[in-house]
Amino acid sequence: MATIKQIRDQSPIILNISNMVTPQHVADAINFIGASPIMFDDIKEAADLVNISNALVINMGSSNDTDVEKSIAAGKYANQKGIPVVIDPVAIGASQLRQDNFAKVAKEVKFDGVRGNAGELAFLADIEWNAQGIDAGEGDGDLHEIAKAVAQKFNCVSLLSGVVDVISDGQKVVEVKNGHHYFAVNVGCGDMLDGILGACLAVDNSLDSAVLAARILSIAGEIAGETTENIPYTFLNTVFDTLYQLSDAQINDLQKLE
């Protein structure tokens, strides 16, 4: 299992295909836990950048042909090199284009981690859910079964993030019950978790490391929320400060696992 100390000691390079909204937040989250972010824009440098990287994170929030081509090219190189690939199927239920683009990438690239909210992962699991754009929405599906189904479908770990984070490798399911409700009002916190997940899997590609990713961000939010009541944007800045200072001892002391 990865630790935050190992991330800081190894400083893995995390290559990101980000969406247009959150690249700065994602880069900051990766950097503040001690990893090293690279934001990837031109397909011509895919091979070179994958070659120096320790994980690839694909965010599908910007659905266009260029990003799909970049994702497939970089994903194939990452698979060949044997480094983890994380994908975020942003608002996949919202449009046929997003569904088609995800399917194109999934056909060509092997994933090591899939991170999304309940609505996004329920769509991948073919479980009925009333998703609301990028928001999880509501549904009656069992979150454990959704996470397990996605992990089994793609033979990877899945991280279903929400009020409670649910992580599965297709057999075992772990809940992380830390967190704070201000994550929901700050756009891009899920994308930040994508990057943190990439860093954790880069150090150790396992279910326990995916659980660590959820613990890191959720506990940072819990700590930040103690001093930022009614100031949700300050909350986000405090999350970054907390990520920079967070220790394994704090994580182990504060974690709420089931």
Results as ranks from 00 to 15, higher is better:
63 S>R: 09
108 E>T: 06
60 M>P: 01
140 D>T: 13
71 S>Y: 06
96 Q>M: 13
66 T>R: 13
78 A>Q: 02
181 H>Y: 14
106 A>C: 03
64 N>F: 06
129 W>T: 04
186 N>S: 10
124 L>P: 11
97 L>M: 13
75 G>M: 10
78 A>N: 00
102 F>H: 03
178 N>L: 08
163 V>I: 14
132 Q>F: 09
108 E>G: 10
83 I>G: 00
152 Q>R: 14
138 E>T: 15
104 K>R: 15
118 A>H: 09
73 A>K: 14
101 N>L: 00
188 G>Y: 02
151 A>P: 05
131 A>I: 13
155 N>L: 09
189 C>Q: 13
110 K>Y: 06
149 A>E: 15
97 L>I: 12
167 I>L: 06
137 G>T: 06
149 A>D: 12
183 F>P: 01
87 I>T: 01
175 E>P: 03
103 A>F: 07
62 S>A: 12
115 R>C: 01
90 V>R: 09
108 E>Y: 08
53 S>L: 10
83 I>H: 00
91 A>Q: 05
160 L>K: 03
79 N>T: 06
171 Q>S: 14
129 W>Y: 15
127 I>W: 02
110 K>S: 12
83 I>D: 00
164 V>C: 02
78 A>E: 01
107 K>C: 10
69 E>F: 07
167 I>E: 00
178 N>S: 08
153 K>G: 02
176 V>Y: 04
126 D>A: 14
149 A>K: 14
